[in-house]
Nucleic acid binder design. Structure first.
Lengths: 83, 83
DNA sequence: TAGATAAATACGCCTTAGCGTATAATCCAC
DNA sequence: GTGGATTATACGCTAAGGCGTATTTATCTA
C-alpha cells in the first residue's frame, strides 16, 4: 500500500494510481487544487521540473502524505517499476 | 525516525536534519548533486518552487527516499513543526 | 463503431528556478 | 572577541513551469 518513490516518474505514477483509486480524473484534481488539468497531466507523467508546491497541493487533494526516511534495501516489486 | 512531511517547509527541515546527521554541509551536498550551495539553502528553507528533479537528487545524495501513502492521523509531534 | 469522457499537446505570456560568481550575514570553537 | 567555516543573499542570464484557452488524441462504453 505504501509506495516507495525515488524519482519524479515514480511519484507521478503513484499519484495517478491513487487518483484513480479515488475515482477522480485529472480535471477533478485540477479543480480541487486550482491547477490546470494539463498541469496534473504533466506531474503524473513525471516532469522533472514539477514544483514542490504543486506536488504538495496534489498530495493534499488526494489525502496523501510523504514520509521521508533512509533508503531501504527494498525488493524491486516494492518500488515503482523503472518502466 | 521516519518523518511525515506535507509541505515544502517540512521537507526542507527534514532534509536539513538528515544532512547534518550525515555530517555534511550544504557545499558537500552541492558537490554530490551538481547543485549550488545556494540551491541547497533554498530547498532547506522550504522554497515552494523547488523542482522535483532537484529534490530527488538531494534525497539520493543523502541516501533518503520518499514513501507516499494515505494521510494518517498522526500526533503533531510526529509531523514537522508548522514552523 | 459511434459518441462521450478523459488525457495529452499547443501557443503566447509572465514569473521564477537554478546557474556562475560574489559577497554579506551567521555560527562556532578557541 | 576573533578568525574560520557555514549559510543566506545578490545580480544578470537562460530555460522552463504554470497560466488561460483550445484542440488533438486516446480510452472507454453503450
Amino acid at each position: 500500500m505504501d509506495q516507495i518513490v525515488r524519482t519524479p516518474k515514480q511519484i507521478g505514477d503513484a499519484i495517478r494510481r491513487q487518483r484513480r483509486k479515488h475515482g477522480l480524473n485529472q480535471t477533478n484534481v485540477g479543480d480541487r487544487t486550482k491547477l490546470r488539468q494539463a498541469t496534473i497531466s504533466a506531474v503524473e507523467s513525471g516532469a522533472l521540473g514539477t514544483q514542490l508546491g504543486t506536488l504538495c497541493d496534489i498530495l493534499a487533494a488526494l489525502d496523501l502524505e510523504f514520509v521521508i526516511r533512509p533508503r531501504t534495501k527494498a525488493k524491486p516489486a516494492e518500488i515503482e517499476d523503472i518502466f
